[in-house]
């Protein structure tokens, strides 16, 4: 039975897409078949982290929504090659990305015409079935829109990513309320970009008490991933890095 993990932030800039790409990669390294779907139709981006160029996309999620292809035809194998110091990865793990189109015309069409949001449900289920997935990660649009709410409603696990920032606190509270109303059972918070010198245990307590949800991890604000600038999957590039260790812990908690 495949698990659907929706990854959401109320505000942009939390590192949502990078974290999703890294967690998906680490779970694939553990031998799982992991789908990643970019439902951030209005501002797609995770394909950049995986190094998938616009020209290399034959079909995208948009093509599926307009009935131009089956959803699995929009899947691209983006499994990052093993990095230095990593052994050959255990087959048959893979990361399969379903990108959204970054073409201005395609984005405009979604805005002007809209689409039946339920099609995404059909698409997710078909993906899991046709690609034999163990996990499906949904990279959602920040804030609240229909794709995001649907992804939350469909998810087995909702992973909320926030920075230790008052605006993020307030926004995350909105998502938590909506997720509770959508009857999500498994809701976890990942606190990202924690600046050095912050009392992490105090912060953890505040988050868990504020949202009545467990904290799955607290990752530091890191210069090396900032320097990479979304030009690759950090965990694949730097498997021994302390940030990768932290990400690996989060991945193993998602796996268990």
């Amino acid at each position: 039975m495949a698990k659907i993990v929706s990854v959401h932030s109320f505000r942009g800039g939390t590192g949502k897409s990078n974290t999703t790409a890294n967690l998906a990669t680490l779970i694939a390294r553990a031998g799982k078949r992991v789908g990643v779907i970019d439902t951030d139709i209005h501002s797609p981006g995770i394909h950049v982290v995986f190094g998938l160029r616009e020209e290399a996309m034959e079909f995208t999620l948009n093509d599926f929504l307009w009935g131009r292809c089956r959803i699995e035809q929009a899947a691209h194998d983006v499994t990052p090659p093993a990095g230095p110091g990593e052994g050959p990865s255990e087959a048959p793990g893979a990361v399969l990305l379903i990108p959204s189109s970054a073409r201005a015309g395609e984005i405009a069409r979604v805005l002007s015409e809209g689409y039946d949001v339920g099609l995404l449900t059909d698409g997710f289920r078909a993906l899991i079935r046709e690609l034999g997935l163990d996990y499906l990660f949904i990279d959602t649009h920040p804030g609240v829109n229909e794709e995001t709410l649907l992804s939350i409603a469909l998810s087995d696990t909702l992973l909320l990513i926030m920075r230790p920032d008052s605006q993020d606190f307030q926004g995350t509270a909105v998502t938590v309320e909506l997720a509770r109303r959508l009857e999500v059972d498994d809701l976890r918070v990942l606190v990202n970009k924690v600046p050095p010198g912050m009392d992490v245990e105090l912060l953890r307590g505040q988050v868990e008490a504020g949202f009545k949800a467990p904290v799955i991890g607290m990752l530091p604000l890191d210069h090396d991933i900032a320097r990479l600038g979304s030009a690759g999957v950090f965990a694949a590039r730097y498997p021994g890095h302390p940030l990768t260790q932290g990400l690996r812990q989060v991945a193993s908690r998602l796996l268990s």
Binding site: T121, I152, A153
Partner: peptide, 17 residues
């Protein structure tokens, strides 16, 4: 909000299929 939540719950339900 109730209407939106209902819409999402039905869009997500297997009964759709």
């Amino acid at each position: 909000l109730d209407a939106l939540m209902s819409k999402m719950k039905s869009a997500a339900a297997p009964f759709r299929a």
